[in-house]
């Protein structure tokens, strides 16, 4: 659930653009490099982008009595890094802002920051740390992508709290109110997204495991271990 059009006053909407635009450009540079140097990985890039398309279109009911949607960004973040994920998310957010009146053009900078950048950075960091700690690959994917999903909405709540501090209690009171709406609703969805992404990675390993090694997502020996375990 993205921030509506016009729901971030000055200077917040501009600030979030200032934050997001350099990273989007860096992502485009990385994407260009990837496309020209590793053409055979384009289908996997398309799959990661399409995964964001599918998951961010599914508005799911939550235990809190409201609905929200997963982000799907964790998969792209693990495979291609947060910067490339920012570009993919921008495409999805533009589509939703222009054609479905979901999110907005003036709030695009803020929405890319939460869904396309900060959430994916969480996925990336958790994934790398988890793999280094030698935790089971699928558990790491689950944790990384579930937390990326959840972190996205914690950021959204923070963005709104900064822009709309409560008269009594200021930013902290607002943050509590927005977290109650976004963060709690998102918990079951984030778990669902983590589980689905872990399952998708099982299929990626089945059909295109060499790409994971090439992208340095996983080492050859770790891959052999997973394959040997025979999921």
């Amino acid at each position: 659930m993205h921030i509506f059009e016009g729901f971030l006053p000055s200077p917040w909407w501009q600030l979030w653009f200032v934050f997001s635009i350099p990273i989007i450009f860096f992502g485009m540079y990385r994407l260009n490099k990837l496309v020209s140097e590793k053409r055979e990985l384009l289908p996997l890039l398309a799959v990661a982008g399409a995964f964001i398309f599918v998951l961010s279109s599914l508005k799911m009911p939550s235990v809190t009595g409201s609905s929200s949607h997963p982000t799907g960004t964790g998969m792209a973040a693990i495979l291609f890094g947060p910067a490339v994920t920012a570009v993919l998310s921008t495409i999805v957010l533009l589509y939703q802002a222009i054609f479905i009146a979901h999110g907005g053009l003036t709030t695009l900078g803020a929405n890319v920051a939460s869904m396309g950048i900060i959430g994916p950075v969480f996925a990336y960091v958790i994934y790398k740390a988890g793999m280094k700690a030698n935790i089971n690959f699928y558990v790491v994917v689950f944790l990384a992508t579930a937390f990326a999903d959840w972190a996205t909405y914690v950021v959204t709540a923070t963005q709104l709290a900064l822009a709309f501090p409560a008269e009594v209690g200021g930013v902290a009171a607002s943050l509590k109110a927005f977290l109650l709406i976004f963060a709690t609703t998102q918990v079951p969805l984030a778990i669902m997204e983590g589980a689905l992404t872990a399952l998708i990675f099982k299929y990626v390993i089945q059909v295109k495991s060499d790409a994971l090694v090439e992208l340095k997502v996983i080492t050859e020996s770790a891959l052999n271990k997973i394959k040997g375990a025979g999921q």
Partner: peptide, 26 residues
């Protein structure tokens, strides 16, 4: 509950914090 969107609820919360706020892109 009709299980409306969390973004809509956030809109309501904004109206509660600042009842004068009108999206400036109106």
């Amino acid at each position: 509950s009709e299980f409306g969107g969390a973004d809509g609820q956030a809109g309501d919360a904004i109206a509660e914090i600042n009842s004068d706020y009108v999206p400036w892109t109106e």
